[in-house]
Amino acid sequence: MLDLLARLFGKESTSSKDIARERLRLVLVHDRSVASPEFINALKEDLIKVIQQYMDIDMEGLLVSIEGEDNSVALVANIPIKGLKRAAGD
């Protein structure tokens, strides 16, 4: 009976299938994007275009990747800056 009560209340949120589903969701976000290098390259090129309007960047040292952390997936971009452009009108 206690077991039944425990199942009805509380315990449900820690069932291992929920953990499985959540981990799968995260790993697949990563897999699906990493699966195509074209995707990353296209993103990289667009990022460069936008950022170059504001600053000089080191294209050789530029790194863009999608990384899974404990509970989230993040777009990580490491973009070395060579110099800032003067804002127009200065």
Binding site: R7, S15, S16, K17, A20, R21, L28
Partner: peptide, 15 residues
């Protein structure tokens, strides 16, 4: 599946 320790059909189809 019933005790919540295995993904069910719906979970897998969702993904």
């Amino acid at each position: 599946v019933k005790r919540g320790d295995m993904m069910d059909i719906e979970d897998i189809l969702d993904i």
